[in-house]
Amino acid sequence: MVRLKARYLLCEVCVSDSSRLRLLEERSIYQAVKAAVIKAHGEYGAALFNIGSTVTYVNAYTGVVILRFRKAHYQLLWSALPFITSIWNQGQKVQCFFNCIHVGGTIRTCQKFLVRYGRQQLCRMLPHCKTEAEKQEVRRAVLSCSLRKLGVDDGDKDEDSEEEET
């Protein structure tokens, strides 16, 4: 048997106001992506989207989303993503855009990349810290995600600590 190959798009939802990210939900993202694909590629795009496309992971704190597409036509579906300008959720419109940061063949490579990316974000945050306590907190977070064994929930944890700092 040969398995069906997929591509995982690790995307970041960028918003102007980070508190709006809490509104993100798996279903609303799915609907937004589907609508964008239909608008960009019509019925053909919709048909391709219906085969094996899912939203695998959503982190409402950092806005990290993993989308899963079939490998055969992921580029066509991906080309619709830049045209998303807002996501509707519970009657509220969230102005945002998708920024793809990694394309992986398995969800594991995406997770590895996400841990590295989260650490990079923490390092970027360090110069913005104002008090010494904040700096210590960020340094501790950086060390914790580099030394700890790569667990399943590792990505989430250091992302959360990053969020506290902002």
Partner: peptide
Amino acid sequence: TALELRGPYDIANLGLV
């Protein structure tokens, strides 16, 4: 506006269109 920018990978893929 800042929300009209897109990431470089997305744009490289958009080039296929």
